[in-house]
């Protein structure tokens, strides 16, 4: 299990290569990564991601532990960046390793749903006219219901 909250970029290929590749029980690895996209007005200059340093690691660990237990994962990886990110930059990645693909897919989705609305990160979109905090959407909150 590895959780990293970092300023720097990450190399998905390298991360997955070292992602518990010596466990012979693993038959499926699912990975997801999110990237900075433009806003609807196509005016995004960059994004600033704020975090609550003491709480981020703790909150992510909590949900990773739940996922490992619920889907019998052999390994899980979460990387989330903070600070200034440019258009096209990688924001975060999640990877899960299980015996079968169904567990790997479901646990990765579960982690993504919880990271979106339970890990203390806040996105700010900066444009030439100023900035605005990204609003949370009701869909993100209701996405959690299917896991309860």
């Amino acid at each position: 299990m590895r959780i990293s909250v970092q300023l720097n970029d990450f190399d998905i290929g390298k991360e997955l290569k070292f992602f518990n590749n010596d466990d012979t029980n693993i038959g499926a690895v699912v990975s997801f990564h999110g990237i900075v996209r433009n806003n609807c007005a196509k005016s995004l200059l960059h994004m600033d991601i704020e975090q609550y340093p003491g709480m981020t690691q703790k909150a992510i660990s909590k949900y990773v532990e739940i996922a490992v237990e619920r889907w019998s994962l052999y390994d899980a990886l979460v990387i989330h960046r903070h600070g200034k990110l440019l258009l096209g930059d990688q924001i975060m990645m999640v990877a899960t390793a299980a015996r079968h693909r169904r567990d790997a897919f479901q646990s990765a989705e579960f982690l993504m749903d919880y990271l979106k609305s339970r890990a203390p990160f806040w996105k700010k979109e900066v444009t030439k006219d100023g900035y605005q905090w990204v609003k949370s959407v009701l869909d993100d909150e209701s996405a959690l219901e299917r896991w309860t």
Binding site: I91, S117, R118, W122, K123, W133, E141
Partner: peptide, 12 residues
């Protein structure tokens, strides 16, 4: 010992 106030999270 610590209490924090913030808007709904928008990570991921």
């Amino acid at each position: 010992t610590e209490i924090a106030f913030f808007p709904p999270m928008t990570g991921g």
